[in-house]
């Protein structure tokens, strides 16, 4: 199947990648789903964008995209930031699929750094862009050794990192890429999502796929799989909390971005999930910022 683009007449195979590549990636995906949290190597391709811009996520998305899929792309929770806009446009052009900004209506969501606030439902797929898939990397630089540690379930070192956090800061100061244990077996890096999102991964109804383009690894969390954030008995896992609600929609239970408004140090806290925020505003919710403006 191929898609002809309107503007330059160039013809791409549906969703850019050739069918053989898609098959290769799908095989890696099947293995990843079969062994939750295990990093499956795959022959990552050069994509028409630099590493670090989501090449891993794009390859996963391209391999599983179907013509009747509805695609949503978010970057730091927002639908309107550079990375999200360009990836969405990319797939509009090379696959011609429908796109949306609504979490509810999307069948496939590619994300960088966030999980939507609205709970995902069965049948949805969440694709993460992953820069560094190996959670043990900064403690153990040797790839042979980290593989062995995964194989033999030697995960003491991961707690050394958390120990260091507490010794240095008095609490576990890791706020993103917070290590999790998947299905009571593999330790996994949930990509640089804030730890605020970790609880959403646990027993999530949607399929979660992770693609790391530069490192050429794919891993997955199937629906309804246990995902537990690591912690100490006397220093349990905690998520971030904010003193203020969202200035625009008044939400008190979402991940907030701090926006600096002027040179006087005025700042505003708004939902990082733009779809969640606009949906709430349409429903009539108002935050302190809106009330003041009226």
């Amino acid at each position: 199947m191929s898609t002809e683009t309107q503007d330059d007449g160039l013809e791409y195979n549906f969703a850019y990648l050739d069918e053989q590549t898609k098959r290769m990636i799908r095989r890696a995906l099947l293995k990843a789903v079969a062994v939750p949290g295990y990093q499956v190597p795959f022959a990552g391709r050069e994509m028409p964008m630099p590493y670090g811009w989501g090449t891993g996520g794009i390859q996963v998305t391209a391999s599983i995209l179907e013509p009747d899929d509805v695609l949503k792309v978010i970057d730091q929770g927002a639908d309107d930031t550079t990375n999200a806009v360009s990836i969405r446009k990319f797939f509009q052009r090379v696959a011609g699929v429908a796109t949306t900004e609504k979490t509810e209506g999307a069948t496939l969501i590619q994300t960088r750094h966030r999980i939507p606030e609205m709970p995902l439902h069965e049948g949805q797929i969440l694709v993460y862009q992953v820069p560094i898939p190996e959670p043990l990397r900064f403690l153990e630089p040797r790839e042979t050794e980290t593989r062995k540690m995964h194989a033999l379930e030697e995960y003491g070192l991961m707690h050394v990192k958390l120990y260091e956090d507490i010794a240095r800061h008095g609490h576990i100061a890791t706020t993103y890429a917070y290590p999790v244990k998947v299905n009571d077996r593999y330790i996994m890096d949930p990509s640089p999502t804030p730890k605020f999102d970790n609880p959403k991964m646990n027993r999530c109804a949607a399929l979660q796929l992770f693609g790391a383009g530069r490192e050429k690894r794919i891993y997955a969390v199937p629906p309804y799989t246990d995902v537990v954030s690591l912690d100490f008995e006397d220093h349990p896992f905690e998520i971030q909390a904010w003193d203020n609600p969202c200035s625009l929609c008044g939400e008190t239970n979402s991940f907030l971005d701090e926006v600096i408004m002027d040179d006087q140090g005025t700042r505003m806290f708004v939902c990082s999930d733009t779809d969640h925020c606009t949906t709430r505003q349409q429903q009539g919710y108002q935050g302190p910022g809106q009330e003041a403006a009226e």
Binding site: G156, L157, H159, R168, F232, D234
Partner: peptide
């Protein structure tokens, strides 16, 4: 481990053995 504090160095074998109480 030169980049890990003295306490972390001593604790590593304990944590590898399953100790989970800071």
């Amino acid at each position: 481990r030169m980049t890990v504090s003295a306490g972390g160095n001593v604790g590593e074998r304990l944590m590898a053995g399953g100790a989970r109480h800071y």
